[in-house]
Design a binder for these strands. Structure first.
Length: 201
DNA sequence: CCACGGATTGGCT
DNA sequence: GCCAATCCGTGGA
C-alpha cells in the first residue's frame, strides 16, 4: 500500500471533527533537504474556539493564536511548559479558530533522523522506538518542528499530509481529551483502536 | 504498576 | 504572578 497524493486545501476547510477523524491513517511528511520524515497519524484531538474553553482561540485573536484563525490547511505550532512545541492542523473557514492537535504518530520513514532528533543517537531500543512519536511534543521533536514552522502551508512542499483510504468507523475510537483543565468532558479525542503508538489507551 | 513533582519560557490577568 | 493542549525521572506499593 503506497501513500497517495497530497491532501488538497479542500480537505482541510471542512468541519473540524470530520477532518480530525479523516486525518487518522493519513501520512504526515516533513521534507528535510532531500530526505523525508514520514509517519501515520494515529491519534488527534479537535479544538473549537466557538464553544470550547480549552481551545487557544476561545478568548479571541492574539499574536500567539492568529494562525489558528486562518482557513484550513495551515500548521499552528505553539510553545508550552517552557520547553515543548505542539502542532495542530487548522480546519474550517477563515476566522473560525478551529484546529486538530496531532497527538500520536506511527513512525514509518526517516527513523534514524527522528531518533537523532529525539534521543541524540541513531540506534534506539524497542522502548525508545515506542516513545519516538507517541505524544504531541514528541512528534514535534522527532520531526524537528519548532516556532519557525508556525503558519506553514500544508499545501506546500515542506510539511504536508498524504492521502490514504478512509478508515471505517469501527476502527476509530473517541474519548475525552488529555492534559486540559477546561471543557474536560467533551469527547473530542479520536484515535485508531489498538494501535501500539498511541499516547494512551 | 501508579502518583507526583521538576524543568523552564512566555502569554495573559 | 500564575500557570500551561508535556515529558521524564523518581520513589513507593
Amino acid at each position: 500500500m503506497k501513500p497517495q497524493k497530497k491532501l488538497p486545501r479542500k480537505f482541510y476547510t471542512r468541519d473540524v471533527h470530520t477532518v480530525a477523524k479523516e486525518l487518522l491513517g493519513k501520512f504526515l511528511v516533513r521534507k528535510i533537504g532531500r530526505k523525508h520524515l514520514i509517519g501515520k497519524i494515529v491519534e488527534v484531538e479537535a479544538y473549537d474556539g466557538s464553544v470550547d474553553k480549552a481551545a487557544h482561540t476561545y478568548g479571541g485573536k492574539t499574536k500567539r493564536n492568529e494562525v489558528m484563525f486562518n482557513e484550513g490547511g495551515f500548521l499552528y505550532v505553539y510553545f508550552t511548559y517552557g520547553m515543548h512545541f505542539c502542532s495542530n492542523v487548522v480546519t474550517g473557514k477563515l476566522n473560525e479558530g478551529k484546529a486538530v492537535l496531532l497527538r500520536a504518530i506511527e513512525p514509518l520513514g526517516g527513523l534514524d533522523k527522528m531518533a537523532l532528533n529525539r534521543f541524540g543517537k541513531k540506534d534506539i531500543s524497542t522502548m525508545e522506538l515506542k516513545n519516538l512519536t507517541n505524544g504531541p511534543a514528541k512528534i514535534c521533536q522527532a520531526f524537528g518542528i519548532v516556532r519557525s514552522e508556525n503558519g506553514t502551508d500544508l499545501a506546500g512542499n515542506e510539511i504536508f499530509i498524504l492521502d490514504s483510504s478512509k478508515l471505517s468507523e469501527n476502527k476509530i475510537a473517541s474519548s475525552t481529551r488529555i492534559g486540559i483543565k477546561k471543557s474536560v468532558d467533551l469527547p473530542w479525542r479520536y484515535y485508531i483502536k489498538n494501535n501500539s503508538f498511541l499516547s494512551r489507551k
